[in-house]
């Protein structure tokens, strides 16, 4: 399956707040990061959690975020980063 984003692309993680199970921690929602790598296609957690087969599979990415952007009061080192796995249906170009 073809990936919409490539390493280096800037993406925004969706800020939505679905009531169903998902694998996007609240702290990362709405933030902008950069694609670090494409991990492959995997079943959608929102469907797998309820007995489904996760189809259609979605491309999974690792997104690199700046800690000072994630946490406005981040008090450690300004070059610190965080990488997180996010599915394509949670990402928009930024």
């Amino acid at each position: 399956m073809s990936a919409r984003f490539a390493p280096g692309d800037r993406v925004r993680i969706a800020g939505r707040d679905p009531t169903v199970h998902n694998r996007v921690p609240r702290y990362a929602r709405g933030h902008v990061g950069v694609i670090e790598r494409v991990c492959g296609a995997f079943g959608q957690p929102e469907l797998l959690a309820y007995g489904g087969d996760g189809e259609p599979y979605q491309t999974l990415y690792r997104v690199r975020l700046e800690q000072t952007d994630l946490w406005p009061d981040y008090a450690e080192s300004p070059q610190d980063t965080l990488e997180i796995e996010i599915f394509e249906h949670w990402l928009d170009p930024a």
Binding site: G40, L60, E76, D80, L82, I86
Partner: peptide
């Protein structure tokens, strides 16, 4: 050290 980047990996999905 302050000059070293600390990179946290949150294992949120299939990796």
């Amino acid at each position: 050290a302050e000059r070293v980047e600390v990179r946290v990996h949150d294992s949120t999905a299939d990796m």
